[in-house]
C-alpha cells in the first residue's frame, strides 16, 4: 500500500508518491547501449521502475534503491554514464511527449549538453588515470587570465 494511501491522502497519480525519486541515466559510450543498460538495471534492482529511452534510462523508485542502482550502473562505464535528478516520474502526462506532442520539455537542454559530455568524459578519465599529457592540459593556460590594465598599456606603448 502506498504511503499516500496510508496517510489517508487521495493519490491523484499513483506513480507520484512521497519518498520516491526519478533519475535520468544518460549513456554516451561506444561499448554500451541503452538496451544493455536497461537489461543490467533490471537484474540489479527489480523493484525499481525502469524505462528505456533513446539516450539511456529513466528510473523511478524508493531513494535508497535508486541510489544503489545508480552506483552499480556507473560502474559499468564510470566516465561515460551521467546521472541527473528528474522532477516528474516517467510517463507523467504533464511532461510526456506522448500527451503533449513535440519534444519533451527539457529535451533541448539535454541535447545541448550531450554534445559536450565527451569532453567531460575525457576530464573524468584524466582524473582517474592521469597521464603526463593530461596534467599539462589541466594546467591553467595564460590566455585564460583577463588582460590586466598594465599589460594593455604596455601593448599600446609598444605599438
Amino acid at each position: 500500500m502506498s504511503e499516500a494511501v496510508v496517510a489517508g491522502q487521495r493519490s491523484v497519480r499513483p506513480s507520484v508518491q512521497p519518498g520516491t525519486v526519478a533519475k535520468y541515466v544518460f549513456v554516451d559510450s561506444p561499448e554500451l547501449t541503452a538496451a544493455d543498460l536497461a537489461l543490467r538495471a533490471y537484474e540489479i534492482a527489480p523493484a525499481v521502475q525502469i524505462k528505456e529511452t533513446c539516450f539511456g534510462l529513466v528510473i523511478t523508485g524508493l531513494e535508497a534503491e535508486v541510489d544503489r542502482l545508480v552506483i552499480e550502473l556507473r560502474n559499468l562505464d564510470p566516465d561515460r554514464i551521467f546521472v541527473k535528478d528528474r522532477g516528474f516520474p516517467p510517463g507523467d502526462e504533464r511532461r510526456c511527449r506522448a500527451n503533449l506532442g513535440g519534444a519533451r520539455p527539457g529535451f533541448y537542454g539535454h541535447e545541448n549538453e550531450m554534445k559536450l559530455v565527451r569532453y567531460i568524459s575525457s576530464g573524468l578519465r584524466a582524473l582517474r588515470d592521469p597521464k603526463k599529457a593530461d596534467l599539462l592540459r589541466a594546467k591553467p593556460k595564460k590566455q585564460d587570465e583577463p588582460l590586466s590594465p598594465e599589460r594593455l598599456q604596455e601593448i599600446i606603448e609598444e605599438s
Partner: peptide, 17 residues
C-alpha cells in the same frame, strides 16, 4: 564556461573536483 575541447574538459572537471 562549458568545455569546447578535450583540454578544456580536463580543466573543467579538475576545477570542479
Amino acid at each position: 564556461t562549458y568545455p569546447r575541447s578535450d583540454e578544456e574538459g580536463v580543466r573543467f572537471v579538475a576545477a570542479i573536483k
